[in-house]
Design a protein around this nucleic acid. Structure first.
Lengths: 129, 129
DNA sequence: TTGATATTTAACCATGTAGTTAAATATAGC
DNA sequence: GCTATATTTAACTACATGGTTAAATATCAA
């Protein structure tokens, strides 16, 4: 019987699993924003966005500061660190796949692998919600 | 109206949001396994595990090969690459927090602080776990 | 005070998820 | 063919999620 770990990994990954929430985070990465400004690009009601923000807040990815009647939303990327660290333990597996391809092509020299694509940003893909 | 991106990010993050599924992946990182061997450490029924495996499979994180009546489960970490690359674009934000602490301690010079860390490769921590 | 603006809460609905037990399917081995 | 083993499918329950509209709350501004 396995005992479970991080509650924060659960909520972080769950928060990131929704494209609306990811878009909100991307928006916040360009600067703080009010709730209604955040909601504006989306074709859903304000309460729907309000709920999404609560999910992000519970995950610790978003902080709201009250400023008059406006709530200023700020990104907090800290929980992403734990998430990326968890995933990183699998890095060798996807790199191994590259290596086995590279190794096949260059007769398997395990020290000379090429990981340059790791710097390539990935978020340029298209739409298929 | 924002149009959404990667379906695979959705399913990858959703798959990783569950601790049972993360434990299954960790187990698979030590080697391939049958379904029943995967299920053994958990206090749930086999059909429950079967469903979790299907979620992992739909996310592309797991591949099943039929081998007689046994199904051999293998990790495929490839989708994690896209996930980690997505998160990595926020790396500077959690690093900035460390820096702002450092900056506070060294009298907060806003022009002289960061940039060098932006070149730091994303995969500096995981390499050879 | 009155009204407009920003945002949340409440009540509701549809769908998805995670579990259950029981039955079905496929295969191995006699 | 018969039986045990490995695994999935079916049918069901309970709860979470993401959306809606309508109403409530808080604050600004006249």
């Amino acid at each position: 019987m396995v005992k479970y770990q991080s509650r924060t990994l659960n909520s972080t990954f769950a928060a990131l699993a929704d494209p609306t929430r990811r878009a909100i985070l991307e928006r916040l990465s360009t600067g703080d924003s009010s709730v209604s400004a955040l909601a504006e690009p989306f074709d859903v009601s304000l309460p729907a966005i309000s709920k999404q923000l609560r999910v992000l807040e519970r995950a610790g990815l978003l902080v709201q500061e009250k400023d008059g009647r406006v709530r200023r939303c700020r990104l907090d990327a800290q929980p992403m660190k734990e998430a990326v660290d968890w995933i990183a333990q699998y890095r060798r597996f996807w790199e191994d796949q590259l290596e086995s391809l590279a190794g096949y092509l260059e007769d398997l020299d395990p020290d000379d692998d090429d990981v340059s694509e790791d710097q390539k940003p990935v978020d340029s893909e298209g739409r298929d919600q």
